[in-house]
Amino acid sequence: MKISGSTALVTGANRGLGRHFARQLLERGAKKVYATARRPELVDLPGVEVLRLDITDPASVRAAASAAHDVTLLVNNAGISTGTNLVTGDLDTIRREMDTHYYGTLHMVRAFAPVLAASGGAILNVLSAMSWFAYDGANAYGAAKAAQWSLTNGIRLELAAQGTLVTGLHLGAADTDMMADYEGEKVDPAEVVRAGLDGIEAGRFEVVVDDWSAHIKASLAADPSLFYTQVPSAS
């Protein structure tokens, strides 16, 4: 599909990648951009149409789908990172990660699939290199992103008959507020968004933004003990 002339909806558009998505969509000639957030008053980008949306609230999602009935491109970007582990972490917090990344994305897809059916259109899910590996201290996030990756592959098959493209966007750490405390290398969020939108226009199923993410994906074909070297071998 072409970005120019499209009508897009971006979740979590008040900051970070979401704000970059909304801005670049406008720059690429999108006819209309719905910029959504749980607190819409925080959306400060000129030229967008602001909607209140909490992707974890089915009623809020239904209201957004009713208001934005002309969408041809859905960008599922909204996310959280709680720094929670699975064995000892708070269960409500773990559920919040899953409710946001997995069920929240699923709510959006189910609500907007009939809207997209009219145009074919496209869905871009913002995933993570952590869809493919675990990291002690953020395992709730990794589990939720792995589930979201599987969801992305599943809905691609289910929506193929109506002509809707489903693209997964994988990245390592982006230089956004969410990763402010991370001290490693970070990728420019504008570069992430550019790669994702280029991937949509190219009809790609998956976009792997940076070398780190590509390395992680390649490691899946090898024995896990080669990647998780911190875990003592049973032998």
Rank of each mutant, 00 (worst) to 15 (best):
F112Y: 09
F112E: 04
A113S: 14
V115F: 12
S119Y: 05
S119M: 01
G120Q: 08
G120D: 08
G120H: 07
G120N: 07
G120T: 07
G121H: 10
G121W: 07
G121E: 10
A122M: 01
A122T: 02
A122I: 00
I123C: 00
N125M: 05
N125L: 03
V126C: 06
V126M: 01
L127S: 13
A129H: 00
A129P: 00
S131V: 06
S131W: 00
S131D: 11
W132C: 01
F133L: 15
A134G: 15
D136F: 11
G137A: 08
G137P: 10
A138L: 14
A138W: 14
N139M: 15
A140D: 08
A140I: 09
A143G: 02
A143I: 05
A143F: 10
A144P: 09
A144Q: 04
K145C: 12
A146Y: 01
A146R: 03
A146C: 02
A147F: 04
Q148L: 09
W149V: 01
W149N: 04
L151E: 05
N153A: 11
G154M: 03
G154H: 04
I155C: 08
R156A: 15
R156P: 07
L159P: 03
A160R: 13
A161T: 06
L165W: 08
L165Y: 07
L165A: 09
V166A: 11
V166E: 08
V166S: 12
T167W: 06
G168E: 06
G168W: 02
L169Y: 05
H170E: 12
H170D: 13
G172D: 10
A173Y: 15
A173I: 15
A173V: 15
D175F: 03
D175G: 00
T176K: 10
D177W: 12
M178Y: 02
M179G: 04
M179L: 05
A180S: 11
D181I: 06
D181P: 00
E183H: 13
E183A: 14
G184D: 12
E185C: 05
D188N: 09
P189E: 11
P189R: 10
E191F: 14
V193A: 08
V193D: 03
R194I: 02
R194A: 12
A195L: 14
A195Y: 10
G196R: 08
G196Q: 11
G196M: 13
L197W: 02
